[in-house]
Every structure is written in structure tokens, then in C-alpha cells.
Design a binder for these strands. Structure first.
Lengths: 109, 109
DNA sequence: TAAGTTCATTGCAATATTACGATTATATAT
DNA sequence: ATATATAATCGTAATATTGCAATGAACTTA
């Protein structure tokens, strides 16, 4: 059905899934890496850097912005996108909590 | 088109995206959390624990297994699934490298 | 052997995602 | 006002994902 049953999971589980989904496409990974490398950025750059069409990049940026991981400031005719450091730090905490789990005992396998 | 153009990205970017995709569904997050909490596990448990139908859980397990994050050993009529610690550690390295990036300079925004 | 248990696979329907051409907004410059 | 530049939005096509009923495979027990 393509419809995730979010109501049967905890808020934390859904949050982890949402962040992960954002990183679940190499274009968005590349965009974020680029935004980290350069101090601030413009969408046009990304279209060249990544190699996808402008509407596609714009759509990926929108998703990242909706999640709060990046923010965009109007700067003349172009828009300056950059990492939202505070939200990125919060996201990192949530993700690390998940990734850094240790195995309890281990009886089988 | 629903088709990710993986060929235009680096291996690392695609790897990060693949791992993230696996975590991009709350059921798979819940499965992994459960496998961490309990030492080894059986699929039947998960069906009760998670609340989705058995074929659905089985499918999620298959994806996680394909990625190498979990492994399953036959144990009588049931199968004991558990975290593949070595691969989990490797995955963690890749993901941390991505999540722990720091901003270069920061000129705008 | 027959019945039961457990999990995988198949097949399908519904929804989501990805990508891009065409168009539209917004601002700047002439 | 007109032209230009940049990025968002719309519309659409193709593919992917999610979920489950039905079925199948493998093993255990009576």
C-alpha cells in the first residue's frame, strides 16, 4: 500500500525514521556534504555540483528545509542555503542514541 | 520517475543513503531496537511486538539482512535473528563520519 | 503419515518517491 | 517598462515502497 503505519510506533521511532529518510537519497547526502564544506551556498551551485535538474534539486532542498536541517535566506535574486546548526545538533543526538546502542547479552547467533 | 540516479554520486554517498534508507521506516527502527534489547530473537516475537502482519515483518527483516545489519540462524522451526555486530560497527563509522561534520566557516545565514 | 508451527515467498493494490519540462514568481538591472 | 537571472511550483510519467491475504517450504511432534 505504500503507506507507513506511523501510529503504531513511538514518536522517537518515527523521528529516527524521518531523519533517516531524509538521508536516504544520495542527492540529499551530497547537498548536505556540500553545505558543510562551503560556508553557505546558493541553489544554482548545487545544480552544477550535483548534476540533477534544477526542479529536482529544489525539491530535495524543500524536504531538507521542511525537516529543519537546512535554512534558506533570500540574498538578492538568489537564495543562500545553509545547515541549521542547532537542529542538526539535535538530530545528531537522536540518531546517535539509536546508532550507539550496545547489545545486551547475546545468547545465540 | 522514482528511480534514483546512483551513478552520479560517490560510493560513500550511495552507501550512506542505503543505510539511511534502511532506517527510514519506523518498523525497521523498532525491529533493530528490539534486537538490541533482547539477546537474539525470533520473528514471531517481532510480529507481536511490532503489530504488523507476519509477511510484512518478514519483508523488513529481509531488507535488513540483505544490508548485513542483522543475521539469522535457523533454530528448530524458528529462526533466531540478531544484530551483526561487526557490520553494525562498520555502518556506524560511515554514518558518524557523515553526521559529525562540522561547518567550515559560516559567512552567511 | 498427518497435523501443527514458524517463517519465506508470491501476487497484488494503494500510496510514495524521484525526476524533469514547462511555467510561474520574485528580484535586479537596463 | 523590459529583459535577465534565480529558484519555486505545477503537472506528469516512471519506478519504488509498504502492507497483507494466500500459499508454500521446512521442520517438529503426535
Amino acid at each position: 500500500m505504500g503507506l507507513t503505519k506511523t501510529e503504531m510506533f513511538t514518536d522517537l521511532q518515527n523521528e529516527i525514521a524521518l531523519f533517516s529518510k531524509a538521508f536516504g537519497h544520495p542527492a540529499r547526502v551530497a547537498i548536505l556534504q556540500h553545505l558543510f564544506k562551503i560556508e553557505g551556498c546558493i541553489c544554482g551551485d548545487l545544480v552544477e555540483e550535483i548534476g540533477l535538474a534544477q526542479p529536482t534539486i529544489s525539491q530535495h532542498l524543500k524536504e531538507l528545509k521542511l525537516l529543519g536541517l537546512i535554512k534558506g535566506n533570500v540574498e538578492g535574486t538568489s537564495i543562500c542555503y545553509c545547515i541549521d546548526e542547532e537542529n542538526w545538533t539535535n538530530m545528531k543526538k537522536v540518531m546517535l542514541q539509536f546508532l550507539d546502542q550496545d547489545i545486551a547479552n547475546k545468547k545465540c547467533c
